[in-house]
Amino acid sequence: RTAFSSEQLARLKREFNENRYLTERRRQQLSSELGLNEAQIKIWFQNKRA
């Protein structure tokens, strides 16, 4: 289980509010910017949509 920092969570929530689905390219960008792997971001979005 991933423990996200408050900064990472704030960024993910802001991104989710703008778009509930990420393109592969956007997921790669977020992964690089947040220091998370793409799978972690993908799962976070899946869980948030559920």
Rank of each mutant, 00 (worst) to 15 (best):
E18F: 08
E33W: 04
L12S: 00
K13Q: 15
Q46N: 07
K42E: 15
F16E: 01
E15R: 02
T23R: 03
L22Y: 02
A10F: 05
F45V: 01
F4P: 04
Q28I: 10
Q46D: 14
L30V: 02
W44P: 00
I43F: 10
L30G: 00
A10W: 06
L22S: 02
K48L: 07
G35Y: 04
E38A: 08
T23N: 09
N17V: 08
T2Y: 12
Q40F: 11
N37P: 15
R26S: 05
E18Y: 07
E15N: 01
E24N: 12
K42H: 15
W44L: 03
R27H: 04
S6I: 09
L9A: 04
F16R: 02
Y21D: 07
A50Y: 07
N17F: 09
R26N: 04
A10M: 08
E33V: 05
T23Q: 04
I43N: 11
A39M: 14
L30I: 07
S31H: 02
G35N: 08
F4C: 05
L9P: 00
W44I: 03
N19W: 05
K13A: 13
S6A: 13
K42Y: 12
N47S: 10
G35L: 05
A10G: 05
W44V: 02
I43E: 15
S32T: 12
Y21I: 10
N37E: 14
Q40G: 03
R1F: 13
R25H: 11
W44K: 01
L22D: 09
E33M: 05
R1A: 14
A3C: 15
N47D: 09
Y21A: 05
I41K: 01
L34T: 07
K13W: 15
R14N: 08
R25K: 13
R11A: 12
F16D: 01
A39H: 12
K13H: 15
N37W: 04
Q29S: 07
Q46T: 08
I41S: 00
K13P: 00
I41G: 00
E7Q: 08
R14A: 13
Q40W: 11
R20M: 10
Q29T: 08
R49G: 06
F45W: 15
F4L: 12
F4D: 02
R25V: 12
N19C: 13
A50S: 09
G35A: 06
R25F: 11
R14Y: 10
E18I: 10
Q29P: 01
W44G: 00
K48P: 03
E38K: 04
S32E: 14
N47M: 14
T2D: 13
Q46A: 13
F4N: 02
A3M: 11
K13R: 13
R1Y: 12
E7L: 08
E24Q: 13
S31V: 07
K48F: 09
K48N: 10
F45M: 02
L12P: 01
L12I: 02
A10E: 13
L12G: 00
Q46I: 11
E7D: 09
E15A: 12
L36H: 01
R26H: 06
K42L: 14
Q46R: 12
